[in-house]
Amino acid sequence: MAIFVDENTKVIVQGLTGSQGKFHGLRNRDYGTKVVAGVTPGKGGFDVEGIPVFDTVEEAVVATGATASFVAVPPRFASAAVLEAAAAGITFIVCITEFIPARDEAMFYNIIKRDFGGTRVLGPNCPGIISPGRCNIGITSGDIAMPGGPVGIVSRSGTLTYQALYELSQKGVGQTTCVGIGGDPVPGTNFIDCLAAFEADPETKAILMIGEIGGSEEEKAAEFIRDNMTKPVVSYIAGVTAPPGRKMGHAGAIISGSQGSAKAKMEALRDAGVTVAQNPTEAGELMVDLIHSM
């Protein structure tokens, strides 16, 4: 099985006629994802290499039965795009857009939580999600993913997501689903959401969790793992040498005072029974050893 998306998921691309939307939307389609429509206001009636384009998400949903959306629009339009998708009945929204103001992220996150309880947002500022061999929504290259499981991956870092996929695949260990939750301060989907889904997925036997400095999501995840997880978790936390008070890459990757440090997160995870790696390559090696020992 897979979590959140599979081979039956029908996807629309908001921003398909733009350069990024077209590039990644067509890559997703060519991977085998059911990309059934694009949405760009004013471009309804056109098509992009056989994919029909609609003026609104509602029109696209009515015509195609899509349940997922890939938001690839500029920051100033992203919040409206996400809310339009939710209002049209889309239940899974992947937003890759970066540089969305935190205020806008908090606004659409809380509106969706209040008004559209059946809708999940992944991102923003994330690489997306891939269930290898089944569905790919976002910017992850399908070439580095290996179908069949048994490892589920959840990561705040896009680059380390790709490294984890590649290193596991090179060693013959497949993945059920890989979820890039993004590193912004207000993620629509967090570690706990993914850990709970992996715990419930019978094909996922172990989870690789990649965190980074900033915030307290990893500590919350550690508590959840301790109290709720029966499957083994291997983790790596990026940013061991990061200085306090300096943003490191992601908007949420900043140590404030004594909070959010890699050391604190690693200690919390170890205390919860997680196997914690010192670097990304070791994380992959530890996971491979774990799978081979099962």
Rank of each mutant, 00 (worst) to 15 (best):
T204W: 03
F116L: 07
E59N: 10
G128I: 04
A238E: 03
E212G: 01
I93V: 04
G38K: 06
F70S: 04
Q259R: 14
I130D: 05
G38D: 08
V5C: 05
A277T: 05
P232T: 05
Y109T: 07
G44D: 11
A68Q: 02
F99P: 02
P41T: 03
E105T: 06
V121K: 13
H250D: 00
A200T: 13
V154W: 11
V186Y: 10
G239A: 09
E7T: 10
G50F: 06
A80L: 09
V71M: 02
V274Y: 10
P132V: 07
G182T: 01
T9G: 07
I255S: 06
G123V: 00
G180N: 01
T189L: 02
T281Q: 05
K10S: 07
I51K: 06
S169L: 07
A145H: 13
V13C: 11
A222C: 05
R103N: 09
A238V: 08
A200L: 05
V82Q: 05
N136V: 14
Y166R: 13
A37Q: 03
R29C: 12
D227R: 14
T119S: 02
M107S: 12
I207C: 07
G273Y: 13
M1N: 14
V13Q: 04
P232F: 13
I144C: 14
A283K: 03
V274A: 09
E223R: 15
I12F: 09
G25C: 08
A72K: 06
N136Q: 13
V154P: 01
V186N: 07
T177S: 15
P244Q: 09
A86W: 03
T275N: 08
V121T: 05
P243I: 02
S235I: 04
Q278A: 15
E199N: 04
I237Y: 06
I96L: 10
G215T: 00
T189E: 03
P124G: 07
T64G: 10
